[in-house]
Design a protein around this nucleic acid. Structure first.
Length: 653
DNA sequence: CATTCAATAGTT
DNA sequence: AACTATTGA
């Protein structure tokens, strides 16, 4: 029961609105592009920029005109204007399509915005690792970056020298599944996305932003320290605004590493218990907030600003715009009723007048645009009209919420009560019955039948088209001899506080000069062996890469030799560190002192590292062709030549 | 005169 | 219920 038990993925669509436009009009692909709303004032406001345009320095916040100046070739797509205001329907619909794909991988899906969602794939990972027949291969995580080390090094560490903990293995399977998720999203929607894989939501979100676009990032718990070293506090979700600024100012800090120096007690002096605990945990990469099932929004609203001279001062214009807003609102509410079988019971009308914002709540008995507009008009007028009878409104919004389910929900409710505990590990998760659980293929299937879950499994098995996670899940469950009882996860935020007085670096450890990680002194020898053996693994992986031709004759032997030779090689390297100056030279790559006779081989080691990095980059950009192919050829040659030297480096003469 | 619009969560 | 803060495209 620890904070590293879960596997959380944050899927974030790349410049989503731009991708939606590119797919609707494929001619736009390959061109710098921005999406703008309204073109009346300085070319409209930019709300999304694709990566080609970002390369040219185009950013959000810019006006369309400014973007044109920066990047004359840029294509500007305008958000359609309906009833005088921006209509974001197509992006909302595209977001729903993506969510429907994500849903196939776990019911524990939380839509965080139109283009972002959290997935708790802990159970899918458990299934994978329980039934895995072989080690995870690099090819399964070819688009994955790992914070703190090379992906290959991370994979290797999972299976050797006992350095791996269960937690990192889970994340590795999480990355494999995340690759599959992103591939499915692309296959079924044509959109690319980035993802973060970590033990919690905060870290998953942070990780997802590290390698964009169309890449994913695994953030191991032991990668947090290096990442936090220079990470500005504002990069953490919810610390990007005023609170983060005041935090930085109050504590006199800039980075997360600096925040970690504050004890819980120190934080408690300035913040309430909840905030202090949250900060304390987050500074250590701990976040216990659960992924909650949420597929639909809790409110639906629309708004419009009337800046400067557009301010509303006449009753007719006020009534007009409330009419437009309520028309849009009703349209969306009716669509929502169709899709989600629910009705909003309350509305809130918001308004800004003379720089003062206010809002009023009102019952919502029917989806009647005229009645809503009239009700809103009365409320706004009552509040905004001054003593002299004039008013000046610069912003209007209408929001609908307090949804109630229309459908007979008892069948589903009773299903959860009777079946959830025995079949699922989600019993501790909040399940909002306002959600349209019938959309979950699993629940729908189960609900449609009164038979037991086992019967249901057979139905699913017979239906190949239902290629969901659950098919595999139940398949594995059924074949499993022993099944662990459901585990209750602990999200109590008051727990998991480490002892304030404990030293941040425990005794008996040293920093490995290869990887800068803390390693216990007792384990240092085998840890060093790990780095050496890693090189052998790299040779093997290099040899296996399909686009690279390397003589593989030494593979089998080098693997066999691994255990027997690693120790001697360790001694070789360690002795190199204390060589006298006249018999050695300082390596220009790593500044280590290397015996003169071994310098050539040592340089090959660095070359192999570099090659691996290059090859990784080529592999991960497989869509590009022309420009890359020349580089690829060059690299292939170099790999053939140099890797053999690396092999010989490990071969006893 | 100018991001604009949308959605959520927390506080009082 | 009203208001504020935050995030994100």
């Amino acid at each position: 029961m620890s904070h590293t038990d879960r596997v959380v993925v944050l899927v974030d669509m790349d410049c989503f609105y731009c991708q939606v436009e590119e797919n609707l009009d494929p001619q736009l692909k390959g061109k710098p592009l921005a999406v703008v709303q309204y073109n009346t004032w300085r070319g409209g406001g930019i709300i999304a920029v694709n990566y080609l345009a970002r390369e040219q320095g185009v950013t959000r916040h810019m006006r369309g005109d400014e973007a044109k100046r920066k990047c004359p070739q840029i294509e500007l797509v305008h958000v359609p204007s309906v009833r005088g205001k921006a209509d974001l329907t197509k992006y909302r619909d595209a977001g729903k399509l993506v969510a429907s794909v994500l849903q196939k991988f776990t019911p524990l899906l939380e839509r965080a915005s139109v283009d972002e969602a959290y997935l708790d794939i802990t159970d899918a990972v458990a299934v994978r690792s329980n039934f895995a027949k072989s080690e995870i291969q690099l090819s399964q995580v070819i688009n994955t970056h790992v914070v703190g080390c090379e992906t290959l090094e991370f994979l290797y560490s999972l299976y050797n020298f006992g350095l791996c903990d269960e937690a990192n293995l889970k994340l590795a399977y999480g990355a494999v599944i995340a690759e599959e998720i992103r591939a499915a999203v692309f296959r079924e929607t044509g959109y690319t996305c980035s993802a973060g894989i970590a033990h919690n939501k905060i870290l998953a979100k942070l990780a997802a932003g590290l390698n964009k676009p169309n890449r994913q990032t695994l953030l191991p718990q032991d990668g947090v320290e290096s990442l936090y070293k220079d990470l500005p506090v504002r990069k953490i979700r919810s610390l990007g605004g005023k609170f983060g600024d005041s935090l930085s100012e109050d504590l006199g800090i800039t980075t997360m590493a600096e925040l970690e120096r504050f004890s819980h007690k120190d934080l408690r002096k300035r913040y309430d218990d909840k905030t202090a605990s949250w900060l304390y945990n987050i500074a250590r990469g701990i976040d216990l907030e659960p992924v909650t099932i949420r597929l639909v929004s809790k409110s639906i609203g629309c708004a419009k600003t009337f800046p400067g001279r557009n301010a509303l001062i006449k009753p007719e214009s006020l009534r007009h715009w409330l009419g437009e807003l309520s028309a849009e609102l009703v349209e969306r509410l009716e669509k929502d009723l169709e899709e989600n079988n629910r009705r909003a019971k309350q509305m809130t009308v918001g308004f800004t007048h003379d720089d003062i914002s206010a809002s009023r709540v009102h019952g919502l008995s029917s989806y009647d645009a005229k009645k809503i507009a009239d009700d809103c008009y009365a409320l706004v007028q009552k509040h905004c009209v001054k003593a002299d009878g004039t008013f000046c409104v610069t912003n209007l919004s209408i929001n609908a919420g307090k949804f109630e389910d229309c459908r007979n929900v008892t069948a589903i409710t009773s299903f959860f009560k009777s079946k959830t505990v025995e079949t699922s590990d989600y019993s501790d998760e909040t399940i909002d019955l306002n959600e349209d659980t019938s959309k979950l293929s699993f629940y729908k299937e189960a609900d449609a039948s009164n038979d037991s879950i086992t019967t249901e499994i057979r139905t699913l098995e017979e239906d190949e088209a239902k290629g969901s996670f659950f098919l595999q899940y139940f398949e594995d469950m059924k074949n499993s001899k022993k099944r662990e009882s459901p585990v209750l996860r602990d999200f109590d935020t008051s727990r998991n506080l480490e002892d304030d007085d404990a030293p941040s670096t425990s005794n008996g450890t040293e920093i490995c000069d290869e990887c800068n990680r803390k390693v216990s002194i007792a384990e240092m020898t085998s840890h060093k062996d790990h780095h050496l053996a890693l090189q052998i693994a790299k040779e093997e992986k290099l040899a296996r890469l399909p686009t690279i031709t390397i003589k593989g004759k030494e593979n089998a032997k080098s693997k066999k030799r691994k255990s027997s030779d690693a120790g001697t090689l360790t001694k070789f390297l360690q002795s190199a560190a204390i060589l006298p100056e006249d018999e050695s030279e300082v390596c220009p790559q790593c500044q280590k002192r290397i015996g003169r006779n071994d310098l050539a081989a040592h340089l090959d080691y660095h070359l192999a590292r570099e090659l691996h990095r290059e090859i990784n980059q080529i592999k991960s950009c497989s869509s590009e062709t022309a420009q890359r192919s020349s580089k690829k050829t060059k690299t292939t040659k170099a790999a053939t030549k140099n890797t053999r030297s690396v092999i010989s480096f490990f071969k006893p003469n």
